[in-house]
């Protein structure tokens, strides 16, 4: 197990290295002169040159690459638009994204698990068919439109929910106040909507597979109640794919957050990505994207390792 983990970690480092090179290449190809952007449009040529030297932009590319990387890991790289360390900006914005993602994840699980189970148990019934189509509809909705619709209906017509922002904060978190919670509902539901649909399908198919196993027949013939068979015997074993998807889902929330957070003016990391792209803030963009990649790869690894704990039948090596 330990050697497996180590090998995977090494692989992860190799992939991460490639990701940084890819990102660096994309950023270097970007149009516009970073020094000019940093200096502002009215700055003189001398100032721009001075800034270029300052930022190391006149150095060869591998030195620039080294500066990007070391800046990321030491936390020294400076944002070009905020003029503060990238780390500070990310730390400041992270709570908003974390709580929104967690909230959306909770909604996703609460809604999708019962629906998935029901449509597997009542397979091929009208109810199952309806739920399948509904799930397809959920995947087909663009998140930003879902958020816009909820803003119009719940926020403006019915006037029961706030339309944008994070509301009242306590220690930088908004889920601690009632007002903040109310602000989370629209973006949280919008983010969850797509994931719910995907989760329902996943749970349904994995439940269907498990329900055909011999031990389910055994459990039934022992005279156990159907509800016990389904929840204790079947669902516990159908949980695996759901677990795999959880790691991927977390990173999908971040991606979906780019759009959702932009619509509802939620000051999280997703919105920060959008801002850093439009303002051509390369150090910030590099840091954010790399962080996202690290998070995704790590969650993948953790899920794989968790696997062997949940299911003792799985061994690596």
């Amino acid at each position: 197990m330990l050697s497996y983990t180590l090998r995977r970690l090494l692989q992860l480092v190799a992939v991460l290295f490639a990701v940084t090179v890819l990102l660096f290449m994309i950023l270097k190809m970007a149009p516009g002169d970073p020094a000019r952007i940093y200096a502002g449009m009215t700055a003189s040529t001398e100032t721009v040159e001075a800034i270029r030297r300052d930022l190391g932009l006149n150095k060869p590319w591998f030195i620039q690459y080294y500066r990007f990387i070391s800046g990321f890991f030491t936390g020294n790289s400076m944002s070009m638009t905020y003029r503060t360390p990238v780390r500070e900006i990310i730390m400041e914005r992270a709570p908003a994204s974390i709580e929104l993602g967690a909230f959306a994840l909770i909604i996703t699980l609460i809604v999708s698990i019962p629906i998935g189970i029901i449509s597997a148990v009542k397979r091929n019934s009208a109810l199952d068919y309806g739920l399948t189509v509904l799930a397809l509809a959920g995947v087909s909705m663009p998140v930003f439109w879902t958020a816009l619709m909820m803003m119009i209906v719940a926020g403006i017509w019915l006037d029961i929910l706030p339309v944008s922002g994070r509301g009242e904060l306590v220690y930088g978190w908004s889920f601690l106040t009632l007002d903040g919670l109310r602000h989370m509902i629209i973006p949280g539901l919008a983010l969850a909507s797509v994931q719910i649909a995907m989760n329902v399908r996943l749970i349904r198919s994995s439940m269907l597979e498990v329900l055909q196993e011999d031990y389910i027949t055994t459990a039934r013939s022992k005279g156990l109640k159907e509800s016990v068979v389904i929840i204790v015997h079947a669902f516990k074993n159908a949980l695996m794919p759901v677990l795999t998807n959880l790691g991927i889902q977390l990173s999908r929330f971040l991606a979906g957050a780019v759009l959702t957070e932009t619509v509802v003016a939620w000051p999280g990391l997703g919105r920060l990505i959008y801002e850093s792209v439009t303002r051509r803030d390369q150090p910030l963009l590099f840091g954010l994207t790399l962080l996202m990649a690290i998070g995704f790869l790590l969650s993948y690894l953790v899920v794989d390792i968790l696997y062997s704990f949940v299911d003792p039948r799985i061994t690596y090596d």
């Binding site: 190799a14 990102l23 994309i26 970007a30 971040l254 780019v258 990505i273 996202m292 995704f296 790869l297």
Partner: peptide
């Protein structure tokens, strides 16, 4: 597979935003 892993580690929308902002 490594190539896929590299590209998949960045959410597709974010990658698309990046690339489109360049090209």
């Amino acid at each position: 597979m490594r190539l896929l892993e590299i590209i998949n580690s960045i959410p597709f929308l974010v990658l698309a935003i990046l690339v489109v902002s360049v090209f």
